[in-house]
């Protein structure tokens, strides 16, 4: 029985991904983001069949097994774009650092205005950084790691849907700027969207994701208390 559930979960996720990816490639609409649509489909399917997250867990473990190696593979577009990295070191560093500081300040400010408790504000702080680091920052700063993980995933989705449209509206056409913005705000999910835009944007997404993670981890212990009420 367990094996059947596992197989059905994997098959459904794969089918949903392939279908929504084809849809996205055909129409190129940000709201047709494959991760967003497939997540809705899978959650709806789990709810409809009375299944729980625990039933889906083994399939999740198996399907995300290659995420580590895939992240390592980001070194490849990074290497192919090493000249861009070298000639534009200042814009890359300044862009990622300013974006990281700005998005942290914005989330704390907006959360404070909305009247959320300190614990939730701290958990919101590292939401733009890849899950393993964000969770660690939250734990060390007195936040709630599972909550932070949820905020990270939600931000990944929001940034990868809104980001490309916003950048286009702002007339940001440079693939370097687009990739860096998406990776800074929406880590791996932003990088995934940047990769769909092209190799340079994808490589910059990977760079931004790594830099934002390192930088946020370094400044969080000083920056978060400074901004918190």
């Amino acid at each position: 029985m367990k094996l059947v559930i596992f197989a059905v979960c994997v098959a459904a996720t794969l089918a949903s991904y392939l279908a929504t990816r084809a849809l996205f490639m055909r129409f190129r609409q940000p709201l047709l983001n494959p991760v967003f649509l497939s997540t809705l489909v899978i959650i709806a399917a789990l709810k409809a069949t009375g299944a729980t997250l625990a039933d889906y867990q083994p399939a999740k473990e198996a399907m995300t097994f290659l995420l580590g190696p895939a992240t390592v593979a980001l070194a490849l577009p990074l290497y192919n774009n090493r000249q861009v990295l070298k000639s534009q070191a200042l814009p890359v560093l300044a862009g990622v650092l300013s974006g990281s500081l700005a998005t942290i300040a914005a989330v704390l400010w907006a959360g404070w205005v909305a009247g959320f408790a300190r614990g939730i504000l701290i958990s919101l702080g590292p939401k733009s950084v890849t899950v393993p680091i964000a969770v660690e920052i939250a734990r060390l700063s007195g936040g709630e790691p599972p909550l932070t993980a949820a905020f990270v995933v939600a931000t990944g989705m929001i940034g990868s849907i809104l980001g490309p449209a916003l950048l286009t509206a702002l007339r940001v056409k440079d693939p370097v700027a687009r990739g860096l913005a998406l990776g800074t705000v929406s880590h791996g999910q932003g990088t995934a969207v940047a990769l769909l835009e092209g190799e340079t944007a994808g490589a910059m997404g990977g760079v931004a994701m790594a830099l934002a993670a390192v930088f946020t981890a370094l400044v969080a212990p000083y920056y978060l208390p400074l901004l918190l009420p």
Binding site: P34, V35, T39, I43, K47, Y56, M63, M157, G188, T191
Partner: peptide
């Protein structure tokens, strides 16, 4: 690359 974030995002169901 995007595929890997589907199973992770399904975890939002817990909240």
């Amino acid at each position: 690359f995007a595929f890997f974030f589907i199973p992770i995002s399904v975890g939002l169901m817990a909240f």
